[in-house]
């Protein structure tokens, strides 16, 4: 019953927030064109679901998102496994990694768009760059957290280095990699939208938001786009959390929730 109560309270909270936004706008506290009532924004967001041009834009954004994230995964997991299992390489490359990582990825947008133009390649390259780091660091960290006793046991039974990696270290690291992937997914979405807003033309969710922002009285459309972006982020996150819980039910984080 407690679960139902929580759901009810959550629903109430959503309604309250909705009502508050609606009231602020209706009462004229903020100018109507600045902050349209929540109901209008929501109606527009629903209306957009039937707009094929808009949906194509969302599809384009999701496509570059998935492509960038997939590339990041393909780069970060092997490199992370290498860095995490060969200390010498880790020590050697660490300084370079430490200098590359803190660079705010958004700052690369101007350079990369000068190099690659403002098409799909730019977006994918930037998304990949930004989402490599969480996966990479979580992979290295997860490898370090592997139970040494389990590794020693396998070694004692005569398994080779690679077998130990595949049989013990990889399964033990998988939950960490998945957590990194979830963080990267959010960052990738940020980068996808940011690049599109700055590019200003082409197709995509960010471009819809940017163009609506330039139009007079376009705030309603911008906010409707923001609602879509938020829903997209929410769906992605929920799917990943659900997947983690299904695949790795033994991690304490997920065990507690059952």
């Amino acid at each position: 019953m407690r679960r139902r109560q929580e759901l009810l309270l959550g629903g109430l909270g959503v309604l309250l927030a909705f009502g508050l936004c609606e009231a602020v706008s209706r009462a004229g506290l903020v100018r109507r064109s600045y902050l349209p009532p929540a109901s209008e924004v929501l109606a527009r967001a629903v209306e957009l679901a039937g707009d094929s041009v808009f949906l194509e834009g969302v599809g384009a954004t999701v496509r570059v998102w998935a492509l960038g994230l997939g590339l990041a995964c393909a780069i970060a997991v092997p490199v992370g496994l290498l860095l995490g299992s060969v200390p010498l390489v880790d020590e050697a490359v660490r300084a370079i990694v430490e200098f590359l990582r803190p660079l705010p990825s958004v700052a690369l947008i101007p350079l990369v768009s000068l190099l690659l133009g403002s098409g799909t390649e730019t977006k994918v390259a930037l998304i990949t760059y930004a989402s490599v780091w969480p996966i990479l660091f979580n992979t290295i960290y997860g490898l370090g957290e592997t139970d040494p006793l389990a590794k020693d046991t396998l070694r004692a039974f005569g398994f080779g280095r690679l077998s130990v990696l595949v049989r013990v270290e990889l399964p033990a690291t998988a939950p960490f990699i998945a957590a990194g992937l979830r963080i990267s997914a959010a960052i990738a979405l940020i980068l996808a939208v940011a690049t599109e807003i700055l590019a200003g033309f082409g197709e995509g969710l960010g471009i819809f938001i940017a163009q609506s922002g330039l139009a007079t009285d376009g705030t309603r459309d911008v906010l409707a786009g923001v609602v879509w972006a938020g829903l997209l982020g929410l769906v992605i996150n929920s799917v990943l959390v659900w997947g983690e819980r299904r695949l790795f039910p033994w991690t304490p984080e997920h065990r507690g929730r059952r």
Partner: peptide, 23 residues
């Protein structure tokens, strides 16, 4: 009470809101 609203707010990619703040 606040959890769903917070989760939604966090899920919004922040750059998407910048045009709103510009207005």
């Amino acid at each position: 009470l606040c959890n769903p609203v917070l989760q939604f707010a966090r899920a919004i990619p922040p750059p998407a809101l910048v045009p709103v703040f510009v207005v």
